[in-house]
């Protein structure tokens, strides 16, 4: 094999690898890892909720689709086979943080100790407001 052939082969292999990487990134990349994602906003759950109840449109412009870290008191939990959601501020008109199921499965020690009345920090994506503000793919920060 001549030196030129070797160089061509190496370039080809690199090109295929780069192409496969670009394809993977574009089409197969996983969802954001919430544990490694820096939040766009960090605030108290009461302050966040009050922005939504005062002006939903303005709050959506600021928070919709963004990663939010909220600290507040747990008023209720939605537990099925695993912990599904942490409810802050108010059962119906508060904030529902729906937990990332893989986070719950991978961190049983954290999620099993969560109880109503505790103060907690959660991080997740703001999906908007129905009766309550919905945070999805949430994780427990502390």
């Amino acid at each position: 094999m001549t030196a030129t052939t070797k160089i061509i082969l190496i370039i080809l292999v690199l090109a295929v690898a780069a192409g496969a990487g670009a394809y993977w990134y574009a089409f197969m990349r996983p969802h954001q890892n919430m544990e490694k994602t820096e939040p766009h906003f960090e605030l108290k759950s009461a302050a966040f909720l009050s922005e939504y109840t005062k002006d939903e449109t303005a709050a959506n412009e600021k928070y919709l689709g963004k990663i939010i870290e909220l600290r507040g008191e747990i008023v209720a939990l939605d537990r099925g086979e695993i912990l599904n959601a942490i409810i802050l501020e108010d059962m119906l008109f508060g904030i529902s943080a729906y937990l990332d199921s893989s986070f719950v499965v991978e961190n049983p020690k954290i999620t099993e100790q969560i109880e109503t009345g505790q103060t907690i920090t959660i991080r997740g994506q703001c999906d908007g407001m129905l009766t309550d503000v919905v945070i999805s793919r949430a994780i427990v920060v502390r």
Binding site: A26, F27, M28, P30, D127, G128, M129, L130, V134, S136
Partner: peptide
């Protein structure tokens, strides 16, 4: 009533 952003896809790009 449902939030559009709460529709979750397996594929991040598709979502």
């Amino acid at each position: 009533a449902g939030l559009i952003k709460s529709f979750k896809f397996k594929n991040a790009l598709m979502e």
